[in-house]
Computed example of a mutant assay.
Amino acid sequence: MKDWAGVGEAYSASYAALCAGTLPVMSAMLGPAVGRDLVDVGSGDGTLAAAWAEQGWSVTACEPEETMRSESLRRHPHIQTVAGRLPSLPFDDEDFDVAVANFVLNHVDSPRSAAAELRRVSRGAVIASIWTRSPSWLWAEVTERAGVVPLAGGRLAPEEEFERTPEGFERMLREAGLAALDVAEHTWVWKADPGALWTSVEGGVAGAGALYASLGAADRERFRHAFDTVAAERVIDDLLPLEHSAAIAVSAAR
């Protein structure tokens, strides 16, 4: 799986805003926040955790990566942020009304064990999302234009793999022990700053960042030129309108 070590600042400047695009659908699925608490697992730089808090949730942010936690504490000091990694979270059984994992189960080695752990720490609902159309489609085009060899993606063990569709996500969660699931697919357009996207690459974020870090100087130059070309073809009013989709699933309370 991808190595997220050291990317907190670059992630916060780029993809944090994209990943928060699931908030409206998640909020509608969970209902009113009044009097309820929530743990945001894999909370990154705290962007989504802070948004939950603004809605009235009592929020605990839980994130394994040190630089992500540092960004969260710097940007959102009012949010309690703790170290913790799936599938073994530092909480008691049924500690929270809701457990959230936004674009987390697609980054762990054992999605079913991770989902079962979310179920364990929640006395109410579990809500989670995965990409059905991730940012990788843009970088695949840039990689092809640059004429560089893409990195081989990390693969789950065959018994851990699942189909990245709403139906496949639902099946995997049921196998993990979650019941009474409501699953929706959410598509939205992220208007990205090209400069922020390039920051993510130089900062080592996700697959594109890992690929760039592996390249020699000449290939890096070709990759940057290809990115600038693709961005120039798509930009509208200085921003890149990029379509993404996610499957979002919520389980009923116990």
Rank of each mutant, 00 (worst) to 15 (best):
A213H: 01
L23T: 10
A146G: 11
S251L: 08
D93H: 10
A33H: 09
V104P: 07
V121F: 09
S43W: 15
P64A: 08
R133L: 12
G204R: 00
G6L: 11
L178Y: 06
D95W: 15
T165M: 10
P135N: 08
A125V: 10
A252L: 10
A13C: 13
A116N: 01
A246Q: 05
A213G: 05
D3L: 12
G44I: 12
D182P: 00
L118A: 01
T143K: 00
L138H: 10
R224C: 08
D92K: 14
H76P: 05
A226C: 08
V98C: 14
A50C: 14
D238G: 11
D237C: 06
A196R: 10
G216H: 01
D109L: 10
K2A: 10
R164M: 13
S14R: 02
T165P: 03
Y11H: 14
R74L: 01
S113W: 08
I236P: 13
L138E: 11
R224N: 05
V104E: 07
R155C: 14
G203L: 05
A61T: 04
W4L: 09
L118Q: 03
A217P: 04
M1D: 14
I130A: 13
Y212F: 02
V39L: 03
S70M: 08
T81R: 08
L151V: 15
